[in-house]
Design a protein around this nucleic acid. Structure first.
Lengths: 146, 146
DNA sequence: TTGCATGCAAATTTTTTGCAGCCAG
DNA sequence: CTGGCTGCAAAAAATTTGCATGCAA
């Protein structure tokens, strides 16, 4: 029974292979951390969460860059001075961040796809959207009270 | 006649004073460059365009950071490894960038405001949106043909 | 005159690169 | 085996900071 189940390892292995990458332990560990995080992580946070299993930073940067180019990861900009990455969830969620306390929530089903189609229809000089970013910044309920 | 007209200088001076800043020549030059650019600029491009009139880089970074915090500038992320800034135009336009050749066009009236209100209504843990980012990446008509 | 701004120089932080050796396929 | 990956070390790029001086108000 147990060995018939598709493990997390296998899932990531297939994902990597499918994109033409070798399924190395470093990359599988990276994907695992990102999946469990449920929020976009910086290189620093990834390294900390991997602890002693963390590969060299150069490897992390290279992996993130390649996996992003392959569409496996999304690049998220929190207007800090460093990049954040998360798994490219097909559900296409986005983030709402409190600029005061840093709290973050996800939101989805926001119809950004429709918005994008409309823009694309109106913009003949461009023919295809492959990626988009949509981030909201503001105040959470607690911080707004103060 | 001529001296009754509100000059660009005066406009920026008022803008800076209104936000509690001193209207220094360095900052006025910076705003002037950004206004004329019609596209978000990196620190490098700002420096180049200012030429011999460019203040120290530290000053540029400090100015950009402060003017952004005051809402005078917008922070734009093109998924490069450095920040870009543009004047915070009340028209709220966004950018569509070709990932192949770097070409960029602006678009506006994309109803992102409605989208934001909807999200806000559905997200009781957050009470106010002060800033947002929306960027499209894809292929321009020329690059898509190839 | 007074304190916010700037220049200068140095330090930090973030990201990239070259190259030799390693390991997944 | 073998070419893509990784570690290591060094460099490059991007951004910040401390402090003395300068200039707008």
């Amino acid at each position: 029974m147990k060995n018939l189940r598709i493990t997390e390892q296998d899932r990531f292995r297939a994902l990597l292979r499918g994109a033409g990458f070798k399924a190395t332990t470093a990359r599988i560990r990276l994907l695992r951390i990102l999946e469990r995080a449920h929020e976009p992580l910086s290189v620093e946070k990834i390294t900390k969460r991997l602890g002693s299993l963390a590969p060299d930073m150069a490897t992390i940067y290279r992996s993130l860059r390649n996996l992003h180019a392959a569409g496996i990861l999304r690049h998220v900009d929190f207007q800090h001075r460093h990049a954040h990455y998360e798994l490219n969830d097909p559900k296409d969620h986005h983030h709402f961040t409190c600029t005061n306390c840093g709290k973050m929530v996800n939101f989805e089903n926001c119809d950004v796809t429709k918005l994008i189609s409309r823009v694309l229809r109106r913009t003949p000089s461009f023919s295809k959207v492959t990626e988009h970013s949509l981030e909201l910044f503001g105040l959470c309920a607690q911080c707004a009270k103060k």
